[in-house]
């Protein structure tokens, strides 16, 4: 059981099951779509955090940019969605290359602070050039993609569209994580100095990780803009970066499905709690402190522990937190 949880195919199956189960347990197709979209962006964030050891507060840059570029291409250039999406991925990758290249010039906490500062830079760019972005109002009337001549206006039909892309991109991210490239990222995360000493051009690998993460995050941003019909200023704000990071950490580990789990938890909890109490973020803040103190391996750590209990074998998940790096 616990060995099973380490297999990539199982993770993909879990992602597919998530896609199938969400329509059964949720009444809102919008919320279900949001879970897949943010799950994708959190998985892309995990490629940096869990695999490469880069804690980036800049993921909102690519998410927001994806929203804007998709809106502009759909509205102003009149491109259809299947042409727009690859272009968005390219813009996301290019921007992430630039941001990544600049940020990794500093290491450790300076890197983290730089990514946050860059996220502010892009926020003010979007805010300042309101002719293009709509400023505070956002870019309005972003259309849904069309299929067979009609727009996917119904939430669940758009959900199906998102689900297909989600599974395809999840598979792509998995492929990346398992590749020679992905395995080198793990080495860089574990011991950057040694990775460099055995011959790896660490910077190039980090920038490439940024590019892939940026491309997928921008695609998620595009899907989000089409979902809500707006490319809002809030998508490029600090809070989007923070939210994506929180989802990833709540999910836990160098494990792409865990990030989807984190996103689902965050959005469902937010949906339920905000209906009861608008200040539910207070509870989230308390939860983050609790995770930092008692649950560093996140929700996935709980899954592993549960699996270990079921098989009654001391599994990896049962190792005390203190002994982990």
């Amino acid at each position: 059981m616990t060995r099973l949880l380490e297999r990539p195919l199982v993770h993909f199956a879990l992602a597919a099951i998530t896609v199938l189960v969400l329509p059964l347990v949720l009444r809102s197709g919008t919320l279900a779509s949001e879970i897949l979209i943010y799950g994708l962006a959190a998985a892309a964030c995990n490629l940096l955090l869990g695999y490469t050891g880069l804690l980036s507060f800049g993921q909102g840059i690519f998410f927001g940019l994806g929203s804007y570029v998709s809106g502009l291409l759909l509205l102003r250039a009149g491109w259809p969605a299947p042409v727009m999406l690859p272009a968005v991925a390219l813009v996301g990758a290019a921007t992430a290359t630039a941001v990544g290249w600049l940020s990794i010039r500093r290491q450790g906490v300076y890197f983290v602070m730089l990514t946050l500062a860059f996220s502010q830079l892009f926020y003010f760019l979007a805010y300042t050039f309101s002719d293009l972005t709509g400023g505070d109002n956002g870019l309005l009337n972003v259309p849904r993609p069309r299929l067979g001549g009609r727009a996917l206006a119904d939430p669940w039909s758009y959900y199906a569209y998102v689900a297909v892309l989600f599974l395809a991109l999840f598979a792509v991210l998995q492929r990346v994580a398992l590749s020679t490239f992905g395995r080198t990222l793990l080495a860089i995360r574990d011991n950057e100095a040694r990775a460099s000493a055995i011959g790896f051009p660490v910077r190039a690998f980090k920038v490439a990780a940024f590019a892939i993460s940026g491309a997928v995050t921008a695609l998620a941003g595009a899907l989000h803009a089409m979902l809500i019909g707006v490319a809002p200023l809030s998508n490029i704000e600090y809070h989007t970066s923070e939210t994506l990071l929180i989802m990833t950490i709540i999910g836990g580990g160098a494990n792409l499905f865990a990030s989807v789990l984190g996103a689902a938890f965050y959005l469902v909890a937010g949906d339920l709690l905000s209906a009861i109490w608008p200040r539910w973020l207070l509870l989230l803040g308390a939860l983050l402190i609790a995770i930092a103190l008692f649950m560093q391996r996140g929700l996935w750590g709980l899954v592993e522990r549960a699996a270990a209990l079921v098989t009654r074998a001391p599994a990896e998940g049962a190792v005390p937190e203190e002994s982990r790096p």
């Binding site: 492929r175 398992l178 590749s179 020679t180 490239f181 080198t184 011959g199 490439a208 892939i212």
Partner: peptide, 10 residues
């Protein structure tokens, strides 16, 4: 090392 910079290669 550059051969490893191939995100698609197993």
């Amino acid at each position: 090392p550059w051969a490893a910079l191939a995100p698609w290669r197993r």
